[in-house]
Amino acid sequence: MSFELFMFLVTAAIALAGGVGMIVARNTVHSALFLLLNFFAIAVLFLLLHSPFLFAIQLTIYAGAIMVLFLFVVMLLGVESIEDRTKDRLAGQLWLSVVLTLILMVQAITITLLAEPAESQAQNTALLDQLADPALIGATLFTTYLLPFQITGVILLVGIVGVVVLHQRAHLYGPLSETEREFAEQYAAERTASGQPAEQAS
């Protein structure tokens, strides 16, 4: 067994363990941490595929930014309130998930088997090294994919403006007026009466 294969097997096992752990963990924070483990393992897989750039991106974006966001939301909502998972709210979803996972596995295996045979290992590795060059990725981003790159900037701008807008209104308009408060309370009462969870009147 080559060193590379050995590394792959170990990392893949860790990635799988992280994925399974995320699903079975009862505590939401533990779930998030298992997901973090999975992200790290995937990052190492990228390294094994000769893609140091993707390795770095995976770590900074997924393990860094997105994970922090997840943990932040979990902490913000309070772990206790979402811990009760004993009741299956969607009947039969366990079996559905098993079936869907099997379909996905069959799909993955079929695609792997159907893939055209590699010409030669060395050639592929050389090609990979070339493709993973960060300079090449940067150059492509500014030439072929110039427009999508710019549009992404617009999307980020809209996202930022949206967050500011949604956050600012409460400060701008101050507390609710009498009619608005009555309206909100009436609505909350209707929701409670119809069996849906009541909301807090702000």
């Binding site: 549009i151 809209v158 807008v165 949604l166 409460a170 609505y187």
Partner: peptide, 17 residues
């Protein structure tokens, strides 16, 4: 782009639940 903008605009009616 279209959807993210509309998420914000749909929730624009403060303080309507």
């Amino acid at each position: 782009l279209l959807s993210i903008t509309l998420y914000v605009l749909t929730a624009f009616f403060y303080p309507r639940y």
